[in-house]
């Protein structure tokens, strides 16, 4: 056994979480809702604007992920606690970090496929665009990468929310509340005075997604998503290690 985090057990847990998520009806409903809404709203906009870009997807998807991600993560830990299987899991020779990372990685894998499915839009637009005009692939991939990073960040918050409640619905509501904070704080940054306005802007996900959507890969955005995701995973570990459910 590894002295530190054993990536083999993390991967074992991740695979189990992924297959459990894929087989659950909630994942199916979330995927249908996500792709359905994007298709329904984006397509008329796209043809009306006559613009070869996926900006519409980048603008719409965060609103959907705001609900979809907490719905996907609500059961990750709360369901184990409610059904009692968490007792079994936590008496296996696993570190709390391994449990949290395994669960998160399983979700992240699903999120990767969910966002990966949106590649359909740049491919479609590229095939429809006038020759010579083309699609800005950097901006498109930046948008998709930004959405994936938002998924990871929301997923970490959702995982933490799931560790706080035995009831999945409560975990979902908590997850939405956390996401709401980071979704809207940037939108309302103008309401804060001076320096606080800048802090609010930085804390919100919007500004970071906008940068990536322009095809600009700024280290600060990666640091933002990385550190926020890590922070909520760390909160989840602290919560699990308390063993007070």
């Amino acid at each position: 056994m590894s002295k530190f985090i054993d990536l083999r057990v993390v991967w074992t847990l991740a695979r189990r979480t992924f297959s459990h998520t894929v087989e659950s009806p909630i994942a199916f409903i979330c995927a249908v809702f996500f792709y359905g809404f994007i298709g329904l709203i984006f397509s008329p906009q796209f043809f009306a604007n006559n613009n070869a870009s996926i900006d519409g997807v980048g603008a719409l998807a965060p609103w959907l992920l705001w609900f979809v991600v907490p719905a996907l993560t609500m059961g990750l830990i709360s369901d184990e606690i409610r059904s009692g299987t968490f007792e079994h899991l936590s008496t296996l020779p696993l570190r709390d970090w391994e449990i949290v990372l395994g669960k998160f990685k399983g979700f992240a894998l699903f999120a990767f496929f969910l966002i990966g499915g949106l590649v359909f839009y740049p491919l479609l637009i590229a095939s429809l665009a006038h020759p010579g005009v083309g699609l800005d692939w950097g901006a498109s991939l930046g948008t998709l990468l930004g959405l994936l990073l938002i998924c990871f960040f929301y997923g970490a918050m959702g995982l933490f929310a799931s560790s706080l409640a035995k009831n999945q619905v409560v975990a979902f509501i908590l997850g939405v509340i956390f996401c709401t904070f980071f979704f809207f704080i940037g939108q309302f940054s103008g309401l804060f005075p001076g320096f606080l306005s800048q802090v609010a802007d930085f804390l919100g996900v919007g500004v970071h997604l906008n940068t990536l959507s322009r095809g600009v890969f700024d280290i600060r955005d990666f640091l933002y998503f990385g550190s926020m995701t890590f922070l909520f995973l760390y909160f989840s570990v602290i919560r699990l290690s308390s063993r007070r459910f």
Binding site: R8, V9, T12, L13, R16, L92, P93, L94
Partner: peptide
């Protein structure tokens, strides 16, 4: 699954 988590790799 349990075996792998128990270190039977």
């Amino acid at each position: 699954f349990v075996g792998r988590l128990r270190g039977l790799h």
